[in-house]
């Protein structure tokens, strides 16, 4: 059973073993976000469908470098705070800033893939660069971070299926940034798949819907 809910709306009443994205108030469970409520097997949860990216430790994100200082680079990670990566993390060892120049590694405007390492309230969050931290591509798209996070966190089959059906290289950040590498036709197909994700609220039939759209795209392109 699932239904659309808004913040403050009563999702369920009673006693549940676990709850996610809801506030328990007495016997009532109130939604904290705009999303789809699911109640099954003694648990109640709301899958967020909108809102900003809320970082969690371990998330894989893609950020835009907005500033490079001798000891750290600042990234816009499409969230309410910036992220930063220490120069040591890029060089994978402790460095002397007078001898090593971080701007040789990254520049303003570069895309960097990283994992969220540490979150402190009121401060920029600390990121750890990924093994393949330099993100290159031909197009960048933004999808709702709430949906991106869901697709990413549930280890969804959707990103790999999009890659398979379009032939494009894809990097998806939990913060809603999608970087695509491929020719124009591949980029257009990926965009159409992302449009499907953005336009639907029911994530259950999403996998099949995307396959349907991309197969149709492939056929019409061949004709």
């Amino acid at each position: 059973m699932s239904k659309l809910v808004v913040p403050g709306e009563i999702v369920a009443k009673g006693n549940f073993r676990s709850w996610v994205n809801v506030l328990k108030k007495g016997e009532e469970y109130l939604s904290l976000f705009v999303g789809r409520a699911e109640i099954s097997g003694g648990r109640v949860r709301v899958i967020r469908l909108s809102g900003p990216y809320i970082p969690k430790v371990g998330d894989f994100v893609i950020g835009v470098v907005t500033d490079v200082q001798p000891l750290a680079a600042t990234l816009d990670i499409n969230s309410y705070v910036n992220g930063y990566i220490l120069a040591n993390a890029f060089f994978k060892r402790r460095i002397d800033p007078s001898k090593f120049d971080l701007s040789n590694k990254v520049n303003i405007g570069d895309l960097v893939a990283a994992r969220v390492k540490k979150i402190e309230r009121g401060k920029d969050i600390v990121l750890q660069p990924d093994q393949k931290w330099k993100v290159e591509g031909d197009a960048i798209f933004y999808i709702s971070p709430a949906k991106a996070h869901y697709l990413y966190a549930s280890r969804s089959r959707i990103p790999s299926k999009i890659k398979e059906l379009t032939g494009a290289e894809l990097r998806l950040g939990a913060n809603g940034i999608v970087v695509v590498k491929g020719d124009l036709k591949k980029i257009e197909m990926v965009k159409r798949a992302l449009d499907v994700i953005e336009s639907t609220y029911n994530l259950n039939g999403l996998y099949n819907e995307i396959i349907k759209v991309l197969n149709k795209d492939g056929k019409s392109a061949d004709n």
């Binding site: 835009v64 907005t66 816009d76 910036n82 405007g109 570069d110 591509g137 031909d138």
Partner: peptide
């Protein structure tokens, strides 16, 4: 105070 942010379009974009 929360550090300020600014819009910067990536080189890819």
């Amino acid at each position: 105070m929360m550090p300020s942010k600014k819009l910067l379009v990536s080189a890819v974009r």
